[in-house]
Structure formats: structure tokens, C-alpha cells
Simulated scan of single mutants.
Amino acid sequence: MTLMTSVSSSLAVLVVDDEAPARARLRDLLADIAAEVPNAVVGEAANGVLALKLVAEHAVDVVLADIRMPDMDGIELARHLGGMTQPPAVIFVTAYENHAVQAFELNAIDYLVKPVRAQRLATALQKVRQQRLPPPLPVLASLQEGARTHLSCHERGRLLLVPVADILYLKADLKYVVARTASREYLLDESLTHLEQEFSARFIRLHRSVLAAKLAIAGFEKCATEEAEAQWQALFHGISERVPVSRRQWPVVRSYARQSGAGGQGRAIA
């Protein structure tokens, strides 16, 4: 990840690609068309996670993002950028001329097919000058292959990334969702229902307002409530908090516990 000085009268460009030669080629092309479309490369990143860190540190007008990258691909990067108050424009770079590329074009999301040509790049940057439109989030969600690797949290003017692998449970809280990790809570502007659909393989519903990460569940214990009515509660690795399991969801949760062995450590799940 590198950061460079921008030129205020130019388009500030962030180049994101996991391959160094591809980033170098884009830098050279941007320099070639600088007289036609003034621009300055203000940073480079090898994946979406590093790119978001740069965007948080520096003003960026346009992101040239490869689609297929490790850790976080270009589609997920664009989804996180789209949630910002003033998101940069995103131009996708891809080696694959397929149905996704056609969808980008139909929805006014520009794209460049590798090997990128100088005039095509200039045309794309001119579009940015004229429109500055962020990619439509619903379109990006439909095009992404598989679930996201991170969720976004906007906190005190900052964009924080929460690795999905670190989340122990997700809890609906009014119009937001609280993501609990072993270290802290994050407030997400997400729908619990949509998160359940997207991450169905990773999370299981404990009750109508809580999804628990299956691998984070340490076991289940039956406890008496204030009304002296016994209720099953889920225990998690790394935290002391317990989350109640609703009567409605208990048969499903119990079945999972029996299959996975999550009811271990001497805790009955009968």
C-alpha cells in the first residue's frame, strides 16, 4: 500500500490491483493521458481492505479497481465505498468480458477490460468528471459472488471494517444491527434479515433479533429467568455474555448443537 501527494486541479486516482505489473501499467496510462484528462495517482493498494484505509486517509475522486482480488475484491470494495457520505467514483478493471460487465454498463457503472487502452481510460475518466455517480449498491450486491468478507461501520466520521470472521453474533437494535466481536461492539446500518440471507452458511438464528456465528458458540445452558421459567441460553467463545434462545428456534438450534457438538463442556442439550 503506497500513498502519494495529489494535485488539487487533477482527478485524484487510487489504483487497486493485486498484481504490481497491472498497477504499473495503469500508472503509465494515466500519465500518458494526463494532458487530455488531468489526473494524479494519489495511492496504490493490492486489495480492497488496503484501498479503504487509503480512502480514509486521503481525498480520492476515482478508484480504478480490479474485480478479482484476495481478501476483498473490487465489488465488495465498491459496496463499502458506496456507503460513504461522499463516495469516490469507481471504475472497474477486469480481464473477463462477461455478463457482469454488461450489467455494469447497463447500470452506468464504467469498466475497463484488460489490457486497458489509453483512450478507453480517458473516456472513463471523462465520465467521472461529468457524472461523479457512485455505483448503485443493489446492483453491486446482486453481482457479488458469495458473501462479503467485511461489514462497514461508520463511527465518528470514520469508516471501520469489521471482519465477518471475527463476529460472534449480530443483534437487531432499532433500525441498526449490533455486531459483537470478542473485543467490542460495532453499530451497522444493515438489515438483520438481509444479513441472515447473505451469511446463512455462517450464522444461525437464536431468536427473532439475534444471529449467532455457528463456530463461535461454545455451548448451551438452561437458566432460570426472573419469572423462574427455565430458558436455554447460548454461550460464546471469548466473552462472558449469554444470549437467550427462543422457544421457536430451540428445535433448530438443538439440532445444530447435536450435529456440531456445540453443547459440549458438560452442558446438556436434550
Rank of each mutant, 00 (worst) to 15 (best):
M1K: 02
T5G: 00
S6I: 00
S9L: 05
S9V: 05
L11C: 05
V13Q: 00
V15Y: 01
V16T: 05
E19P: 00
A20P: 12
P21W: 06
A22Y: 02
D28S: 10
L30M: 10
I33C: 02
E36M: 04
V41T: 06
V42P: 00
G48F: 06
V49A: 15
A51Q: 01
H58P: 00
A59L: 01
D61G: 09
V63S: 12
L64E: 04
M69Y: 12
P70G: 12
D71Y: 03
M72I: 06
D73E: 02
D73I: 04
I75E: 00
E76R: 02
H80W: 08
H80T: 05
M84Y: 00
P87D: 06
A89G: 14
V93R: 01
T94H: 04
Y96S: 09
N98H: 14
H99F: 11
A100N: 13
V101W: 08
V101N: 06
N107F: 11
N107W: 10
A108S: 13
Y111A: 15
L112S: 11
P115D: 13
R117A: 13
R117G: 14
R117L: 14
A118D: 13
Q119M: 13
R120K: 14
T123L: 13
Q126S: 08
V128H: 12
P135E: 02
P138E: 11
L140G: 02
S142G: 10
Q144N: 09
Q144R: 15
G146K: 07
G146F: 13
R148I: 01
H150F: 14
L151G: 01
S152N: 11
S152I: 09
C153F: 01
E155T: 12
G157Q: 05
G157T: 09
G157A: 08
R158S: 10
R158E: 13
L159Y: 09
L161I: 10
P163Y: 07
I167R: 02
K171S: 15
D173N: 13
Y176V: 05
V178N: 11
A179Q: 07
R180C: 11
D189C: 08
D189P: 00
E190D: 15
L195E: 06
E196Q: 15
Q197Y: 03
S200K: 14
A201I: 00
A201G: 15
I204S: 09
H207K: 10
H207A: 05
R208L: 08
V210L: 03
V210T: 15
V210D: 03
L211V: 07
L211K: 09
L211F: 05
A212L: 10
L215S: 15
C223R: 11
T225E: 02
E227V: 01
A228F: 08
A228M: 11
W232R: 08
Q233C: 14
A234C: 08
L235F: 01
L235V: 04
H237C: 07
H237D: 12
E241H: 15
P244S: 08
P244E: 03
R248C: 02
Q249Y: 09
V252G: 10
V252H: 15
R258C: 07
G263F: 04
Q265S: 12
G266L: 01
I269R: 04
A270R: 10
